[in-house]
Design a protein around this nucleic acid. Structure first.
Lengths: 327, 327
DNA sequence: CTGAAAGCGCTAACAA
DNA sequence: TTGTTAGCGCTTTCAG
């Protein structure tokens, strides 16, 4: 492996000059720049990121922190991860994956190793020990999701208010007035998406004079089995992607026609929605967008600490399928 | 941040001694070890992994390389990633995610940066430019999957021969003799799992005196729509998880009872299998196992270069559901 | 505009 | 058993 020293020697300059052309840190004569650059290509030089990190005190590595217990990711989480790693690379950063316990201790250990310039935290809880740890550590961080009071924290999240409003709009435009919300029971009570969605639903129902009907179902499939809808209900909003299948087959068994007799609007991903029959109309989570935005927000802050990027909330977007219809 | 120097000073020893207790490199008197350790805890010392990496010429970081175009992972890929990152952490390594083009150039660039000690390559093709690049770079690497001729390469993969044999065993024990194989058409012709599964199917059929019926379907859903099975067929083995749903609903529409009239054995994941109705009997890919094994094999080699871990092939395991039945 | 030199924090000979 | 010392490869003052 060629080093700056080799390059400097071959180009007949000092190693400082090599560094200057490498980083554009100081002005360099076109002529010498030229010499240095040809020397670099001739030697197949690549700068050692480790040495650079140690000397510059910036590693250009960021960590993507996710709960250690996730034995597998949902589709939205997958989108986060891939889009985050692409975004990081696009800006010249590396992304390490840190599966950590939610208590924050392990995260504290990792952060203190000095490997990363910043952290992107996934699956943020309303009250999250990891956020405390990070705030205390001085390591810059961004949240995907948000705590109960995220003021002052760099974060990106789904806009649940807007998403729920859009969902209701869609169903109301189709003539529905009796719209139930079905959510998955959560292992963690502090799960933001559920709390925020339900709050939005209640608020919007009261604003719009709708009767709120809220149903909790098991997060595991097959759901639907035990879901009891009021007779008046003509449409449901489903916050549990997998439950849609259980619901559909139960309805089929009961002879209820979807969407003629009941409309289903599911928050979820196209992959799953398309294999349902009828294919589900969904509110699609902007997973890929958020992953990239989270990384970008963090890097913006790292490279320009005085400015804290504003929170960015993105709504889910409606992707029409065959499970909603005019009443 | 406290450094070795601070610790050494506080403990009244040299920095070398601190390094020795840190790494267990040399014997140290219990007494001095004690002093050093208390000094470390008192100062809240954590060794800087960057400096350590630069000095020891081992970064203890490995890269998990996946195709850049994957806009999202399948469930098996998710399992790879989480299990790989857990396995890496368990052995004191960090895992970086590298989404790269399949031509190998980008991978070559990254490897030459000196960030990682080794690479775990996912989604390996039968003829894979990235493998060439890695082999040429001198960076140790492990494959999850394998090339056409993986001899001499560290790799772990699904045992397709065994899996297919087990699948046929299951169906034959249920009395089936006319068993079709449905695979997804692949964008890449060099897709190992498909090639190997089909080869195993053909070989086993001829060994067992079964009539091979091979059907290609669209990888996207809803499949099933255009699948034409011979009348004699009483069971199908499905290599395309998503197609199961299309197939099921088409069969339902056609009035074919599953499993009474047709058994379906699908290679796939429990999540999806359980939301089908009837819940699918599956051959479950050992994704989590393979991710961990791949990382372990690589690290074994890194820490003990003379021994090259033997290839490890794991079969998919049968998870009975309700889609297969006695003929 | 370019060079000399001092580190970044740690490891690992080599001495003692 | 412990200490001294020379780097790992790069960035970054400070002079010139």
């Amino acid at each position: 492996m060629a080093t700056v020293r080799d390059v400097a020697e071959r180009a007949g300059v000092s190693i400082a000059t090599v560094s200057f052309v490498l980083n554009g840190t100081k002005p360099v004569t076109p002529a010498t720049r030229e010499r240095v650059e040809t020397a670099m290509t001739e030697l197949g030089y690549h700068r050692n990121v480790l040495a650079r990190a140690l000397a510059s005190r910036r590693t250009r590595i960021i960590a993507l922190v996710h709960p250690r217990l996730d034995h597998r990711f949902g589709s939205v989480t997958s989108e986060f991860i891939t889009s985050a790693s692409r975004a990081a690379r696009a800006r010249g950063y590396h992304l390490v994956l840190w599966p950590v316990d939610t208590d924050g201790d392990e995260l504290g250990e990792l952060v203190s190793q000095g490997l990363v310039d910043g952290v992107v935290l996934m699956e943020v809880l309303l009250d999250d020990a990891r956020v405390e740890t990070l705030a205390g550590s001085g390591t810059p961080f961004a949240l995907i999701g948000r705590t109960a009071d995220p003021a002052g924290l760099i974060h990106v999240d789904i806009d649940f208010d807007q998403s729920m409003a859009d969902a209701l709009d869609h169903l109301q435009e189709l003539g529905h007035r009796e719209i139930a919300l079905i959510t998955a029971r959560q292992p963690l009570p502090e799960y933001g998406p559920k709390v925020r969605s339900e709050a939005a639903y209640h608020r919007l129902c009261s604003e719009r004079g709708l009767r709120p009907v809220l149903i909790d179902c098991e997060p595991t499939v097959p759901a639907g089995r035990s879901i009891q809808l009021p007779d008046a209900t003509t449409a449901v909003i489903l916050m549990n992607e997998l439950a849609g299948f259980g619901l559909l087959s139960e309805l089929a068994r009961a002879g209820v026609d979807v969407p003629a007799e009941l409309s289903i609007l599911s928050f979820g991903s196209p992959e799953l929605a398309q294999i349902a029959s009828p294919p589900l109309t969904i509110m699609r989570a902007p997973g890929a967008t958020l992953g990239g935005l989270g990384v970008d927000a963090l890097i913006d802050h790292l490279e320009n600490p005085e400015l804290t990027p504003p929170p960015r909330l993105h709504p889910c977007v409606l992707e029409p399928g065959g499970s909603t219809a005019r009443r």
